[in-house]
Design a protein around this nucleic acid. Structure first.
Lengths: 235, 235
DNA sequence: GTCATATAATTAACTAGTTAGTTAGATTGT
DNA sequence: ACAATCTAACTAACTAGTTAATTATATGAC
């Protein structure tokens, strides 16, 4: 990894095929095939590979193969393995943010707001059960001390959500509806409850008869999580 | 990895220096240095390395260096990287089992039993905050589908504890002291709450001012966890 | 309309560096 | 002497990342 490589611009960033305001793709000069399709296909394959093997364990060859593209194309769209992983993280967290932030804009009372937040969070993960493992892969890296990339991710996505939760909790507590919990303890507990189940699902499946990701089981799990946290938080 | 290698016996398993009933070590013939010390040193270093980098990310060279032994010695005591990791898992889980199983032998009422269990579990992890990451490393491997080794670990350590918890929960529910929770939902939730905090501690530390592993914070966290789960479980 | 051309998209084959695991012996306590 | 313990140096395999070319497409000149 020379310093020249490091600062090389990637065609994808220079923008080749460009999506105009509407929806129709306006191709430029040498655009051929479906470049956005290729990029998306690589990202999709990367999500699966990183979720299954972590960052160190993920194989760029495997990602390329699963995406049905040549490995060099992977390095054409992404600087290196780390950049690809970062793109995956962005994908995961921007999806989550898009899903939960609107909840905080609504003017529901604190109790309903928390429940709605939990429900949306749960449903997003349930619809993408690989995501917890992808994120876990990050904090398994380098002792989880939080690289520069992860710092950015945390500041861009996590802290804003956390701040909103702090607000709602404060309101609920002031209104006497919530027990007095410290967000620094409450939030990671909630995240742990929701995420842990899904990230251990593959292992759980091999241990017990029931499929932890079956539709029925997920519905039960959802009800339990909301009920459990409600009992712990509401007066 | 040839099949011959696979079945080679390791001196450690044949038993060299043997610890007699008392405490004094009774060395055999060519015993020199402190073989048990070397083995323990390797294990200790492996815990740290696996916790920091996961299985694929862990470097056997780094483990040997940290343990102040030649890398070949590592392969003298352990068949390969996987076997070393398995030994680490045994170390972690046997410690946990030794700590929590006595709780179930006691004749405390269900409520106190659960609280005692949670406290012991929490304290064990708090005293060894690297352990959650070590275990997480396992289910990040090969999609967490649960290798043969992990199946063994789960059956040997996890299922017995789970069974005891099922008992206590049933008793508590029948006595009308507990809300009606399904162990298949309750147990992973509790584990998630306890473990998640510690496995994300390094990242958390880089994000906020407070040290999540400071003595005071741990004490607070412990109180919160017991209180939170109590509120969610007890009537 | 069509033809050369610039440029984007894509690939087969390669390389340099890393890493798990081995070998063949050296050392030491008994 | 002898087996247990330990090591320096090695190797075979793997893997992230590169290179140098090739193919397809839109554009603009005519």
């Amino acid at each position: 990894m020379t310093s020249r490589t490091k600062f090389r611009l990637h065609p994808a960033r220079r923008g080749a095929a460009v999506r105009s305001r509407g929806h129709a793709i306006v191709p430029r000069f040498g655009t051929r095939g479906q470049p956005e399709e290729s990029r998306a296909s690589i990202l999709r394959a990367a999500v699966a590979e990183f979720a299954e093997h972590g960052i160190a364990g993920a194989r760029t060859d495997a990602i390329a193969r699963a995406a049905h593209v040549n490995k060099a194309l992977l390095y054409y769209y992404f600087k290196d393995k780390d950049a690809l992983y970062e793109a995956v993280l962005d994908h995961v967290f921007s999806g989550l943010r898009a899903r939960v932030m609107p909840v905080f804009e609504s003017d529901l009372p604190p109790r309903q707001k928390i429940l709605k937040y939990l429900g949306e969070y749960f449903d997003y993960i349930a619809a993408n059960p690989r995501f917890p493992r992808v994120v876990q892969a990050e904090w398994m890296r380098a002792g989880g001390k939080g690289h520069v990339p992860m710092q950015r991710i945390a500041k861009e996505y996590f802290l804003p959500i956390f701040a909103k939760l702090v607000d709602v909790l404060r309101q609920g507590i002031e209104a006497g509806e919530f027990r007095e919990v410290d967000p620094i303890d409450f939030v990671p507990s909630v995240v742990g409850i929701i995420i842990f189940y899904f990230s251990t699902a593959p292992l759980m499946k091999s241990l017990v008869k029931v499929d932890p990701l079956s539709e029925g089981r997920i519905r039960e799990r959802r009800a339990f999580v909301l009920n459990f946290i409600s009992a712990a938080l509401f007066r």
